[in-house]
Simulated scan of single mutants.
Amino acid sequence: MTFNPLQQRGIPLDKQLRNWRELNVTPIDPDHVDPYTRCRIIAMNGIEVEAILFSHQLARHCPDIELKQQLARTRYIEAQQQKVVNWLLPGLASVLETTIAYEQVAVDLTAWVARMEPDPYLKQAYQFGVLEDFDHLYRYSNLYEMIEHRKAEKIVDQLTEVMPGRPTALHHRDPVDNVREPYDKSSAAPISKLHALTIMAAEQQTMNFYMNVGPTYMEPIARRLYQEIGLIEEEHVTHYESLVDPGESWWEMLLNHEYNECYLYHSFMETESDPKVKNIWELHLNMELEHLRLAAELFKKHDGRDPEQVCAPELPQPVTFEPNKAYLRELIATQIDYTTLGTGYVQEAHERFERMQETIMGGEAPPSDQVIEENRSKSGEEYRLQTEGEHPVAGHRR
C-alpha cells in the first residue's frame, strides 16, 4: 500500500507537547533486545539531532522573527522526540557497548543504502565509507575484549561480522580529498537525496558521540583509539555532507529533512520487532507529518513551488536493517585498496595521501594498530566474529 506523507495529516503541533511522565520512556533491555532495534534507536537519534542542528542553522540565517518563532516551536518538539529516542538506550550499557552498536549501525545502514542507491557515483561514496566503518567495528571490538573482557558478539549477535575492513590507519587522508561532488538537485532521484541526508546525519552523530565520550576513559589505549577514529568520523561527515547539493534553498533543505524523518519513522514502524518501540515510531511519525506539512507551506510560500516537484509522490521501500555479510565481503575483495584523490577514487597511494600518512603517524604505529597488538598480547589472539563456514578475505595492506 502506497503512503504519501504530503497527503497525510498528523497531530496538530499544539497537541504534540508532552509532559515529564510521557517523556520518561522505559529503556530497552540490553540483554534481550533485538540488536537491530538498538540500531534503529541510534539511527533515529542521529536523524533527530540533525533536524535540531539544521533548524538552529536556518534560524540563525532567518531575519523574520515570526519565522524564527515557528521554527522554535517545531524544534522544541523535535528536541522532545530526540530525548525520547535517545533515552530508549539503557543506562546499563557501557560506553564501549554503545560504541559497538554505533558501528553496527554505520555498517549495516550504509551497506543497505549502497545496495539501494541508483546513482553510481553516490553508490561508490557509500561503498567506500562502509569499508572504513567495518574496520572501526573490528578495532572497537578488540578494545572491548581487552578492557571489559567481553565479546562483541553479545552486542551484534550473528547479524554483523567483526573482522578487518580497510585498515583504519589508511583512513587518514588530506582533507581536500574528503570532498565529493554533490548530486544535482534538479535531476537526482528523490531517494538519493534521502540516502545522503540519512548517512550524513548518522555519521555526524557518531562523530559527536566520539568527541564527547573519548576523554571519559582512563585507559590510555581507549583514549587514543577514540581520538583517532573520532578524527576519521570528521572525514566521513565531510565526505557525506558534500554529496548534498548546496544549491538547494533553505526551504527546500527543510522540506527534505522533514520528508526524510517521515520516511525513516515510517520505515522503522513497518520493520520494528519491539511493540513498545514500534508505538514510539508510530507516534513520532504522526508528529512528523505535521512538521512536514508546515515545512511544505513554507516551501510553497518562499520558493514558489509545489513540494511534489522535489519530493517523491510516495515513500520508497522501507529502510531495513538486515545482514549484509556477502555484500561486505564482495567489497572487501574488490575495493579494499581504494583511497580518494580529489573528488574521485584511486587504488594507488598518491603524494598527498603519503604526505598525510607520514605527518600524522609521526613515525609510530597508530592507536588502531596498537589496540590489536595489545589485545593479542593480553587475550592470546585478536577478536573476530565470522559466520561459521566462511573465511576471511585476504589482501589487507596492514
Rank of each mutant, 00 (worst) to 15 (best):
A93K: 11
K301G: 02
E50A: 10
Y226N: 13
Y217N: 09
V319K: 11
P118C: 11
R60D: 10
L13D: 01
A79W: 06
E22G: 04
H149Y: 15
Q227D: 14
E270G: 01
Y265V: 01
P164I: 09
P275L: 04
R150W: 05
P90H: 09
Q158M: 06
E373R: 13
L231R: 12
F209H: 14
Y265M: 07
V113F: 05
E364L: 15
I229D: 06
T198K: 06
A296Q: 00
L143C: 03
L67Q: 14
L96K: 14
D14Q: 01
D108K: 01
P27Q: 06
R384L: 09
N208A: 15
E241D: 08
R73M: 05
E374T: 12
A51L: 10
Q82S: 13
Q70C: 02
M361T: 12
V130G: 03
I77K: 04
E66K: 11
A296W: 02
W20Y: 05
T271V: 01
K325E: 12
H172I: 12
P35W: 15
G304P: 03
V244D: 02
R139K: 13
T334N: 11
S186D: 05
Q370E: 14
L88T: 07
I52T: 04
N4I: 01
W251D: 07
R73Q: 02
A394F: 10
L298I: 01
G363F: 14
P220R: 10
H239W: 11
Q69K: 10
H350W: 14
I52K: 01
L17G: 05
H291L: 01
E132Y: 10
I41P: 01
Q317C: 08
E381F: 06
